Simulated assay, not measured.
Amino acid sequence: MQINQVIETYDQGAVDYDAIMKRYWHIEREPLIASLLAEARTNRTRCCGRNRS
């Protein structure tokens, strides 16, 4: 019974992953990643009061 639940959970995760990839695969990743990194650095500066590179 427990192994069946693991398999079902894995299968649902694969379906969810596939749906996400189909939705977002066309996005240019370099600008997106750069913007996320810039936002993370900004948030870290605000949080910690200093800028770390």
Rank of each mutant, 00 (worst) to 15 (best):
R46A: 04
Y24R: 07
K22H: 06
I20P: 02
V6W: 05
A40R: 02
L32N: 04
H26Q: 10
T45D: 05
R50L: 08
R41C: 03
A38R: 15
R44F: 12
W25Y: 12
D16A: 12
R23A: 15
C47F: 12
R23M: 13
S53W: 08
H26Y: 08
L36E: 10
N4D: 10
A40P: 01
M1E: 12
R52N: 07
H26C: 05
Y24D: 12
Q12S: 14
L37E: 14
I27Q: 03
Q2H: 06
L32F: 15
I7E: 12
L36T: 02
M1A: 15
C48S: 10
R41Q: 11
S35R: 12
G49I: 03
A38W: 02
E39V: 04
V15K: 15
S53A: 07
E28C: 08
I27H: 00
Y17E: 04
M21Q: 15
R46I: 02
I7H: 02
T42K: 04
T9H: 07
Y24L: 10
N4I: 09
D16R: 06
A19G: 07
T42L: 02
R29F: 09
A14R: 02
R46G: 01
D18M: 03
Q2A: 14
K22I: 02
T9C: 10
E39R: 14
C47V: 00
I27K: 03
I33T: 10
R52M: 07
P31E: 02
D18L: 01
E30M: 09
D16I: 06
K22D: 07
A34N: 13
C47Q: 11
A14V: 12
I3V: 07
L32R: 11
D11V: 10
R44D: 13
R52Q: 08
G13C: 11
L32Q: 08
R44M: 11
C47I: 03
L37H: 09
P31S: 00
R29T: 10
L36Q: 11
A14I: 13
M21C: 05
M1V: 12
A19N: 13
R52A: 01
C47G: 00
T42G: 00
I7M: 08
Q5W: 09
I33P: 01
I33E: 10
Q12K: 13
I3E: 15
I3H: 12
